[in-house]
């Protein structure tokens, strides 16, 4: 009788909610702690730049930037084509063809460009960071670092953070231009708009501030992706399955945080800067 009661209690919904709340609380504390350690490591890196592992930084720049350029450019280009097609079909009904360059340009530069680049980077770099650090944790390399007096955050996170904050804005600039090119092809082929006209309209509508907004967002996304990937890697368990779970959660949580940050930044830019 008592056992049945225990079973019922264990499986009760309230107990599950309590468990989930505890996990969320612990994870939140862990994230705050990790962010604090990362900020401390950044400050230390700024004070002593010579201690930054530049070789690894270049390696991660190559991995996240150069290697990711073709797929990022292609995805942004196709996004521009898709957006252009959808807008061209709808706007042509109302005779608003002339607004296609502005709509595609503003959408790609302000939102879709940074977002698509960030999502691709999450899939490529964020998951790689989580898997790399998780594997190091499984093989007890991180514990060994701590035992030898190294700070793993400075050793592992700072090169990744520098590489990502440098390469993601570059990828975003290229992604923005590729998205505009995709829209231009649709405008030229579907609506018969001359390339020069499309270009002039884009320049007229897309303000320089939008480009800087795009770059600012990409820097924020780069920080989010790196910290989330590394954090999930440090929070991974001690077996192979845990590494897989850490990788998956790194991607999912990164995308969630990217969307949240984008919502906040869109509000901030629209109300404060472009209000």
């Amino acid at each position: 009788m008592r056992r049945r009661d225990d079973m019922t209690r264990r499986n009760s919904i309230l107990l599950q909610i309590g468990d989930v709340s505890c996990v969320i609380w612990q994870e939140t504390l862990s994230l705050i702690q990790f962010i604090g350690e990362a900020v401390s490591a950044c400050a230390d890196a700024v004070r002593r730049p010579r201690k930054i592992r530049w070789r690894e930084t270049l390696f991660y720049m190559n991995m996240c930037g150069s290697d990711g350029l073709p797929i990022t450019a292609l995805i942004c280009f196709l996004t521009g084509i898709i957006l252009g097609y959808q807008c061209a079909v709808q706007m042509h009904k109302y005779g608003a063809d002339a607004f296609l360059p502005g709509l595609v340009g503003c959408s790609v530069v302000r939102e879709l460009g940074p977002m698509m680049v960030a999502i691709v980077a999450t899939g490529r770099a964020g998951s790689a960071f989580a898997a790399e650090i998780g594997t190091m944790k499984v093989s007890e390399e991180i514990d060994a670092m701590r035992t030898m007096g190294f700070l793993p955050e400075r050793f592992l996170v700072i090169p990744k953070l520098i590489a990502m904050t440098l390469t993601i804005p570059m990828l975003t600039v290229i992604g923005d231009v590729m998205g505009i090119l995709g829209g231009m092809i649709v405008g030229h082929t579907s609506l018969g708009m001359p390339v020069q006209t499309y270009y002039q309209q884009t320049v007229e509508w897309v303000a320089p501030e939008y480009f800087f907004e795009s770059i600012f967002k990409s820097v924020v996304f780069a920080v989010v992706i790196t910290l989330t990937g590394c954090w999930r890697g440090f929070r991974a368990g001690n077996d192979a399955i845990a590494v897989g779970k850490a990788t998956t959660s790194a991607v999912v949580i990164s995308i969630l945080f990217i969307i949240l940050c984008d919502t906040f930044l869109a509000h901030v830019f629209n109300t404060i800067f472009f209000g």
Partner: peptide, 16 residues
Amino acid sequence: MQDTNKFKLGLFVTIS
């Protein structure tokens, strides 16, 4: 850790 392909990285940075 693998060596960095500096040519590719330089090309990427220049293009960007």
